[in-house]
């Protein structure tokens, strides 16, 4: 779980950096070029297969783990422990992950499928003689729908809590026990769990509230 988790965290870094290009205030040029780079080049495409494999592995592992663990206590407590000793999001990683997964289905349908299997007509731009998909426009129009934005915000929130536990936990699973490193990972983990999902969340909001020109 830890290994696949860290792999997905790495993906998130790439994804958020790339998407941050929307705020370049250039009508989406930087963003579209960057997205095109990811879609057209050979290496990212191979990595993409790895990414899907990573997702699937992470989900399968999680399902098996949860399934096994649930069978270890046939009679549950009359008075559950609740938050006495653990954070709710640590206990509900499975649910948080499921929310993220549901969000991902919507997300992939919105952007990845069109980009990979055919954009609607007219959604192209040409920069320096190279024709690229106009994903920027796709985003802009998608996020005009307030309900889609709400779904994205919920997805980001689930991701934030998922990371709040997952980031640190992944490193513990890999055997980081040095006190100083653990403190560092904890700090970075909390920061990551707040900043990255927040950045993602700001994207649909930016479009919805028309902060971008």
């Amino acid at each position: 779980m830890g290994l696949t988790g860290i792999f997905l965290i790495l993906f998130l870094i790439v994804h958020v950096c790339l998407n941050a290009c929307i705020w370049a205030m250039d009508g989406g040029e930087t963003f579209n070029i960057a997205a095109n780079f990811m879609g057209a080049m050979y290496v990212p495409r191979v990595l993409e297969i790895g990414l899907f494999a990573g997702f699937i592995l992470h989900i399968v592992q999680a399902y098996m783990l949860e399934n096994q663990n649930r069978r270890k206590r046939s009679i549950s407590y009359q008075v559950p422990m609740g938050n006495k000793g653990s954070k709710w999001y640590s206990r509900y990683m499975g649910w948080l992950g499921t929310f993220v997964l549901l969000f991902l289905v919507v997300h992939i349908k919105n952007f990845w499928t069109p980009s990979r299997f055919g954009m609607p007509d007219g959604y192209t731009q040409t920069y320096n003689g190279v024709e690229v998909h106009d994903l920027y426009r796709l985003m802009k129009e998608t996020f005009e729908n307030v309900w889609i934005v709400v779904i994205y915000l919920v997805g980001c929130l689930a991701l934030a809590y998922h990371l709040m536990h997952g980031f640190q936990s992944a490193f513990r699973s890999l055997g980081v026990y040095n006190k100083r490193y653990l403190a560092l990972i904890k700090g970075v983990g909390v920061g990551f769990a707040i900043i990255v999902p927040l950045a993602f969340a700001m994207m649909p909001i930016s479009f919805l509230l028309k902060w971008l020109n």
């Binding site: 096994q68 422990m81 000793g85 653990s86």
Partner: peptide, 22 residues
């Protein structure tokens, strides 16, 4: 198996640290 919720450490009467699991 462990999913690092930290409940064990919180209730341990001898306050054994979860760092031991790492």
């Amino acid at each position: 198996s462990c999913t690092a919720t930290g409940a064990c450490e919180a209730v341990c009467p001898k306050e054994i640290s979860i760092t031991n699991i790492a």
